[in-house]
Design a protein around this nucleic acid. Structure first.
Lengths: 335, 335
DNA sequence: CTGAAAGCGCTTACAG
DNA sequence: CTGAAAGCGCTTACAG
């Protein structure tokens, strides 16, 4: 990399001291207007930029935040990242990206690295494996380190940190109520993430919405074969007339099984799924989906982290719920 | 953030000098084995970690690379990022992510910021708008700055930098030949990115594969209405029997128009599209797609950048082509 | 209004 | 084998 000009060199060229140059560039009231102009002109000429690393060392800040993403191929998280990046831009922060791939081990490595102190704060969505193992020690450590941490999306954990996510329970509650309003009597749920925080909340919301007289119809398994068997039971034997699908895999399997068994969507079966708009819109038929407002989640989480870093927030932790809504496409249209 | 222990404090506790502590921790041959053990034990006890910013300042390196991503919601780029991150991990580099949103202006801002010198190197896929405007000045500046730069994916540019991408021309050449081998006589192409480097190469490959007696059937427009009209002409009037779709939008429009006009896929029309596996597999019918090996592209680009940063590469620039292949699903199955 | 000095937390040539 | 000193590129309290 080309050698960039330093304060020292600038000072030599101007025949003034380094301190004068530094103060002039920072518009210090101590420096005469004339000198300020003179210094700034030469700095501009040489395209002087303060060395960020030196500034960081002085200020004990890095100007960076770490973002831990469980799975970037999931377009939900890609959009969250996009929101994070946009807000970080505004706040003058650099985003360092780490991908845990839903792995507990990898997540531990990352949190340890972050605790070593490069970044000023951390945005975290907890890996699936970590949730399954219920081993949050590395996360507690990170928080105890007094590094500002904001949990995003996966926030149903008992930790003293700021959180930004959606109200998973309410969404499935509302969705269930909506299907009831369409006259559906046998509403079921399909899920591969029932062991995860968000998965549990969605089931709770669903159950809560049903009347005492209603049966629960739940197909839950992380194993495709087992899920398929359970779903077929709901579709063919129990003859459910609507299904809430809690994730990508269960949504697509539901749709496929309906197709293979000549169950017509939406006439015989209505579906609402937790999948991305890109896919939902282009399935045949298109599938009504939950728009989680991913970018907004990222933006808000970054905004809170940024304020936390700059001590602009009262000590008590925040928990922000971002509105999400069901986008109705063909799979819930009135038949 | 909790105050972390420094070399100085460690030195005081041990009653030795800072230099001794530093050398001991770095296993210097100058230091006695006894001292090394003593120092390391206390360091471990206090969980000492060198302050990365200070190390960076000394070494004039930041240990970070900047990655400019045109559109992270495109799962191709998400996978590239995933490959980049994995390799950066191995190389001990931190990945700072910037999203240009295909915007020329935003890309300029980012490159200027990067030229200001925080990162050790840059991975770049050039924004669509930049390509349309043909204004590459900011990129040339970045390169001239002697900051190592590696172009990924979008590499059909005349710049003296390392490049990692796929052979777009060959893929559509091969795909066309394949469709011919199935007996298809009227092979067309649908594209919304004909103005972009990769889009042009794909068309070139397609044309190259056709015999002199064959006609070209090209539906090209970035405007949906116009593309639709051109596609309908190919499908209904010209009666093409196969279509290569150069991007997401044209693939889905082709599939939709076929559906709406009772053109059966694959019996009446074969399709190969440049879309992600996640979507391709779940369309009805499933659409044969080009697997671009996105993670490999990211990994390789990062590997080259890392070597370039450490001066482990000869001066001449590299251009690496990552193999990609067509994954055949229902839309090209023998009818 | 300007500059010398100290210091952020390290590393490393040099002296002893 | 150990330590004092210089220096990476800045900022800022302090002296003049």
């Amino acid at each position: 990399m080309k050698n960039r000009i330093t304060l020292k060199e600038l000072a030599k060229l101007l025949n003034v001291s380094v301190s004068t140059v530094s103060k002039a560039l920072n518009d210090s009231a101590e420096i005469s207007p004339k000198t300020i102009v003179r210094v700034k002109e030469l700095a501009a000429l040489h395209k002087y930029r303060p060395n960020p690393t030196a500034v960081n060392l002085k200020s004990s800040k890095s100007g960076t935040v770490g973002v831990i993403i469980p799975n970037i191929a999931n377009s939900f998280f890609a959009k969250v990242l996009s929101g994070i990046e946009a807000q970080a831009q505004k706040d003058g922060l650099q985003v360092i990206t780490y991908i845990s791939n839903e792995s507990h081990e990898r997540e531990k490595q990352i949190t340890e690295m972050l605790a070593s102190g490069f970044v000023d704060g951390v945005l975290l969505a907890i890996a699936e494996e970590t949730q399954r193992k219920k081993d949050f020690e590395h996360i507690i450590n990170l928080i105890d380190y007094n590094l500002p941490v904001v949990l995003y999306d996966r926030i149903d954990f008992d930790m003293k940190v700021d959180k930004v996510g959606i109200d998973d329970q309410k969404i499935f509650y509302d969705a269930t109520k909506y299907l009831q309003s369409l006259g559906k009597k046998k509403i079921g749920i399909a899920t591969t993430i029932h062991h995860m925080g968000v998965g549990k909340l969605r089931i709770t919301g669903y159950k809560e919405a049903l009347e005492s007289k209603d049966d629960f119809f739940i197909a839950n398994s992380a194993n495709p074969e087992s899920l398929k068997a359970k779903l077929l039971d709901l579709l063919l034997n129990k003859k459910v007339d609507a299904l809430l699908c809690s994730d990508f895999d269960s949504t697509l399997m539901t749709q496929r099984l309906a197709y293979e068994n000549n169950i017509r969507i939406p006439q015989d079966l209505k579906i609402i799924g937790f999948i991305n708009s890109e896919i939902a819109e282009f399935l045949t038929p298109s599938i009504s989906y939950v728009n989680q407002n991913a970018a907004k989640i990222g933006e808000t989480a970054m905004e809170i982290l940024s304020k936390r870093i700059n001590n602009k927030l009262e000590p008590s932790k925040k928990e922000v719920v971002i509105d999400s809504l069901v986008v109705h496409l063909e799979s819930t249209s009135k038949s």
